[in-house]
């Protein structure tokens, strides 16, 4: 009988182990990719630097996106009562280009500490969707996570390089300021309350990136003269070939990408 009680005691202690932590681990606020304290942080020279522009074209049959089933939450369903929400996995614009493609300078930049923008990038939860579906930030730059919905969400980024976190956000609560310390392209973000909600965050150690919008174009300004590898990341089409481009001072080059559906 004594052994039984010892066993129960051990199990009870085990069950209390889970109470040991405080809040879930938050993303580190210190920035490994940000300029060292006191050091001069480099800024993109938009007046004298090079510019790379282009578009991400889509060819082939336009995929039919699934309609989200939001019946699990009446508040979400009400937000789309006039037009059911389609998945944003592949959004082909009217001009045959692709929306939500992350374009960034993958290689070729001089080894500098780039200044981190002080303005946060907003990721809103609106209509039980993340708006926008994809954002790009610099490592160390703040993301302002808002909940504009009359319902509850949890925000759960799933990085592999950065610190993972998962926090709840009730309607009307304050926006959360979050950062990711290290470069990572891309970090999926999900809401486990509403499993159709998905977003992507591109975290880069420099300011030379863009996300394509309604016209499928991108512009990367202020590049120091040099030869760069430009990469496109898309959540469905993963094998877009990288391209090399050389730009001089005040020079503008066009780099177009084509994604086959």
């Amino acid at each position: 009988m004594k052994k039984i009680w010892i066993g129960v005691g051990v199990a009870a202690i085990l069950s209390l182990v889970g109470c040991g932590g405080d809040k879930p681990p938050e993303t580190a606020k210190t920035d490994a990719a940000a300029p060292a304290a006191g050091g001069a942080a480099a800024m993109p020279d938009e007046a004298n630097g090079g510019t790379v522009t282009g578009k991400v074209a889509f060819t082939g049959d336009k995929p039919k996106m699934a309609t989200m089933d939001m019946s699990a939450n009446p508040a979400c369903e009400r937000a789309h009562k006039d037009a059911p929400q389609k998945s944003e996995e592949v959004v082909v614009n009217g001009n045959g280009t692709l929306k939500y493609a992350f374009v960034w300078v993958k290689a070729g930049l001089p080894d500098k500490n780039w200044a981190v923008p002080t303005t946060p990038v907003t990721l809103d939860q609106n209509g039980c969707m993340y708006k926008p579906h994809m954002i790009g930030i610099m490592a160390g730059q703040n993301i302002e996570v808002k909940n504009s919905d009359p319902t509850n969400h949890n925000i759960h980024p799933q990085p592999t390089v950065n610190q993972e976190w998962n926090e709840s956000q009730s309607p009307g609560s304050e926006a959360k300021m979050k950062t990711f310390a290290r470069q990572e392209v891309m970090i999926p973000v999900k809401c486990n309350v509403h499993p159709w909600m998905r977003s992507y965050i591109g975290v880069v150690g420099h300011p030379f990136f863009a996300v394509t919008g309604d016209d499928g174009t991108f512009t990367i300004k202020g590049l120091p003269p040099g030869t760069y590898t430009i990469q496109v990341w898309h959540e469905k089409y993963k094998d877009v070939p990288e391209q090399q481009v050389t730009v001089g001072a005040k020079e503008s080059k066009t780099v177009d990408f084509t994604v086959k559906g």
């Binding site: 879930p24 509850n152 759960h156 486990n192 309350v193």
Partner: peptide, 21 residues
């Protein structure tokens, strides 16, 4: 992970009962 805390749930004994929660 729709309930990010434990042993409480959304900081309460009974959380808002919606979706994955």
């Amino acid at each position: 992970l729709s309930v990010p805390d434990w042993p409480l749930a959304w900081g309460k004994l009974i959380p808002p009962l919606e979706g994955g929660i």
